[in-house]
Write a protein that binds this DNA or RNA. Sequence first.
DNA 1: CGGTCTCTTGACGGAGTTCAAAGCTAGTGG
DNA 2: CCACTAGCTTTGAACTCCGTCAAGAGACCG
Lengths: 190, 190
Amino acid sequence: MYPNLVKQIRRYVKLDEHEVQILYKYVKLSSLNKKEYLLKEGQICRAFYFVEKGCLRMFFINSKMAEQITQFALDGWWIADYFSYIDNKPSEYYIQTIEKSEILSIDVLSLDDLIKELPQIERYFRLIMQKALAASQLRTKYMSEMTKEEFYLHFSSSFPDFVQRVPQYMIASYLGLTPEYVSELRKKKP
Amino acid sequence: MYPNLVKQIRRYVKLDEHEVQILYKYVKLSSLNKKEYLLKEGQICRAFYFVEKGCLRMFFINSKMAEQITQFALDGWWIADYFSYIDNKPSEYYIQTIEKSEILSIDVLSLDDLIKELPQIERYFRLIMQKALAASQLRTKYMSEMTKEEFYLHFSSSFPDFVQRVPQYMIASYLGLTPEYVSELRKKKP
DNA sequence: CGGTCTCTTGACGGAGTTCAAAGCTAGTGG
DNA sequence: CCACTAGCTTTGAACTCCGTCAAGAGACCG
């Protein structure tokens, strides 16, 4: 039913067919069109979202009333506002589809029950959190050691297909530079 | 023996006295002076470090041969190079004491055994990884919505005691600005 | 006290932003 | 299937935040 979810979990822990059925009891599918929201500012984030297929962005509105993207999520990735979820506080973020997407959500309140039924899910989440933290450490390192020009070139050569897939201004926002400057850089090195 | 470690774990999971003794079998204490290293560039990070008392910094050497701090760790915090640990690759970071410190380390190879003996430790690590990720998301948000001036003022008013505790140039490095600019900001708003 | 870190000052420069306007492109409805 | 429009990208000029450099003043430690 949700092959990408199962494939992704099996990269870290064992999960037999029967257990997959148990897992499915806790998972809800949303089929969304472009620009639909999973989370809006002011709501409390009560679910982890998994991209079975498609693409999401997470952003907030900064003091200049502009959308500032902090994260993308592609096929096989999880996304959530962990701060809102842990402290049960209204989120300052939006999570929105960039294209037509199949999104799975696990309600965080039922996560404990799921873990009781399938203890290996606890391990799975520990491991992917660790991985997300590693990715976050790496991004911090890149941001601090590169100029904005280098950061852009590094990003677009690391993910050439992704750069084609989403609008330039979103890439710019995510990397912390202006669309105008990205445009200048593309002219320089096509 | 290690009251801060136990106190910190008990904020998330149950741990009776007998279990504390089991935990201690897996934990090694290092009493370090100022400027001693737990990890150096080129080594593989094979442990999670817990600050029982004292203060650590994690940094790398950037292209200008300057130390770039990416993280601090105070009493009750964990630190590690997750990237090096997960992929078993040589680290690009140094982890060093800023002051005389009591550091506990858990070898990552024995972590699985520890979890077999005390399954709640798996949950504990899942929860603190989640928390670290939330903190990381928040830092990213602050960095992208504030100017460097605002970022510095926000940081130093959020952690006034910490700013006193470590040298100015380390704060500057962590926040991604030059010591000269920090000096200018302090003159403006003392 | 001497020497080595650490912090401050000020002049200068440049990477990257801002603003305004024009040129494209793609989605939508007629 | 074409035309229209809203949204996206490009251009160029002016500007500014903050880094760089160099030199001096403190501060801390053996």
